[in-house]
Design a binder for these strands. Structure first.
Length: 504
RNA sequence: GACCGGUUAGCUCAGCUGGUAGAGCAACGCCCUUUUAAGGCGUGGGUCCUGGGUUCGAGCCCCAGACCGGUCACCA
């Protein structure tokens, strides 16, 4: 498993030893007194260059241009890069030129952490730089980092682009590709904006169990695990819905959680086995209210992340400006296919679906056929955020029956960039109806549906005590992050996407 | 799971109809006191993903496998 060291790795280890031989600790312990970050100087120098006559920065050495007795180099800190100017006779004022001739020119390698003190100035070509008077090694790198170069036009050369490299060694990707760091800054800004928005409304952020004796709240296959002391099988949660609604029963008017959920299913550009879902439940509200809330929140999020509601995603500009388009599911099918299926019975609909070229099989009931038609004929055309409302009851065992459309439930999804970004409904709070729906799920399970829900007696007990009318929503944070950061795959918005273990 | 594509130096990539591997950057040596994808001269560096096979000879052809990506299937 240990491979022989490459030539460059050997040289770096030799450099490390030579530093030690010179009495330099390549891994010093003490705090380094940073006074500024690169971006502060870039932003502030033009206004007041006096302010930066004594600065102290630290970061990785990312490039080095040696010209005899003077050199330019770049260091990269957490906020960017800045050029440094190192003059032999200034960092080595006496006879001993070791620090420049040996340490700086020979023993330092790209990727090493150094600290520098000096003053900011403009070079003859007008580049902001730090004129270095003191230089200290803060941490030695013994493995060569890929060298990514950018020219004056902003073209990058030799960027690490192999996805396997990027995902397995995210630390390298982040070090060397600044736009990757930016993506995760934006993801964090997005989540902060949502948290701020909901907290300001007075909703309570809570935490609920990841290890659950019964899994529920979604249709998915779970991961199983085992607790030794209790000698009990647990599941990693596929959703936290049923726990949050127990809290509504308990008397909180609004609760939300950014939850890591786990689903034991296929992986793809849109699916990671563990992913983040934000779920929110608000008492005394219905799904109409929740649609308004969703628009308002995501408009706020877009403004917070980008300063505008118009976001470039692939070839499209997606506008999160309110109000969004709304279609009932039947309405969307009629709009995109010209066929009104709302009054059709199952056999007629099956024929209609086949006529449209939608693939269906005999096991599909009416609700499933509707879903198939929508999925194949409508969803991919919905680029701008669009609400689709009123789903067939069979597919929504936790949603309240529609107040005046038989066979449907009060449910909506928002589709954006041809993908679902959230799922919401007026929550079913009738305990007797809920019991029947669970029992129907058990039937499906017996018929071999691996994703059928389990019957959760404790949840039913909670509903029997009484849950106020409640609106709930789940927002796929990773999917939303893909849109907000303009990334084509979920792996690009997860710092450590799931991968097969590396072979030895 | 099926099909397609990829895997060659630290990184990005070439490599023809099969003749025992090449560039740029990085590295190493020398020169250079305001450069900037710094420059000049010189040098080294490879389990060509793995294992079989065909062949006088395989980075290239054949078979099996690994990993990654894409599409589809499955799926919120």
């Amino acid at each position: 498993m240990t491979r022989p060291l490459s030539e460059q790795e050997l040289i770096r280890r030799e450099n490390l030893q030579k530093m030690i031989d010179l009495g330099i600790n390549p891994y010093p312990n003490e705090t380094y007194p940073i006074s500024h970050y690169s971006n502060e100087i870039h932003e502030g120098f033009a206004e007041d260059n006096e302010k930066y006559s004594a600065v102290c920065l630290a970061g990785r050495l990312m490039s080095r241009r040696i010209m005899g007795k003077a050199s330019f180099a770049e260091i990269q800190d957490t906020h960017g890069r800045i050029q440094i100017y190192v003059n032999r006779d200034e960092i080595c004022p006496g006879e001993d030129k070791t620090l420049y001739n040996q340490v700086f020119k020979k023993l330092l390698d790209l990727g090493d952490y150094i600290g520098i003190k000096g003053h900011a100035f403009l070079t003859q070509t007008g580049t902001l730089s730090i004129h270095v008077t003191e230089l200290k090694v803060l941490s030695k790198s013994v493995k060569p980092l890929p060298v990514v170069k950018t020219d004056a036009e902003g073209n990058t050369y030799d960027a690490v682009s192999d996805p396997e490299f990027k995902y397995r060694q995210r630390y390298v990707d982040l070090t060397v590709n600044p736009e990757v760091r930016q993506t995760f800054v934006q993801r964090s800004a997005m989540i902060n904006a949502m948290r701020e928005f909901m907290t300001q409304k007075g909703y309570l952020e809570v935490e609920t169990p990841v290890l659950q004796p019964l899994y529920g709240g979604a249709a998915a296959r779970p991961f199983k695990t085992h607790h030794n002391t209790l000698d009990t099988q647990f599941y990693l949660r596929i959703a936290n819905e049923l726990y949050l609604k127990r809290l509504i029963v308990g008397g909180y008017d609004g609760v939300f959680e950014f939850a890591k959920d786990f689903r034991n299913e296929g992986m793809s550009r849109f699916h990671n086995p563990e992913f983040t879902m934000m779920e929110l439940y608000v008492a005394y509200k219905d799904y109409e209210w929740m649609m308004d809330f969703t628009e308002e929140m995501l408009e706020f999020v877009a403004m917070k992340v980008h300063g505008t509601t118009d976001i470039q995603v692939g070839d499209n500009v997606i506008s999160f400006k309110r109000p969004w388009k709304r279609f009932s599911m039947y309405g969307a099918i009629e709009h995109f296919t010209g066929v009104d299926v709302s009054e059709m019975d199952e056999d007629t609909m099956r024929k209609a679906a086949e006529d449209m070229g939608v693939h269906i099989d005999k096991t599909m009931a009416r609700g499933k056929i509707i879903d198939e038609i929508f999925g194949e004929k409508c969803e991919h055309q919905l680029i701008q955020p669009t609400f689709i409302t009123d789903y067939p009851v069979e597919m929504s065992p936790l949603a309240k029956k529609h107040r005046d459309k038989p066979g449907l439930v009060e449910r909506f999804e928002a589709i954006c960039n041809a993908k679902e970004i959230c799922n919401a409904f007026s929550e079913l709070n009738d305990p007797l109806d809920q019991r029947q729906r669970f029992e129907h799920q058990l039937e499906l399970g017996k018929r071999g549906d691996e994703e059928a829900m389990q019957l959760d007696e404790d949840y039913l007990r909670a509903l029997e005590y009484g849950m106020p009318p409640t609106a709930g929503i789940g927002i796929g944070i990773d999917r939303l992050a893909m849109i907000m950061t303009n990334q084509p795959s979920i792996q690009d918005v997860l710092l450590f996407p799931q991968m097969k273990p590396e072979g030895e």
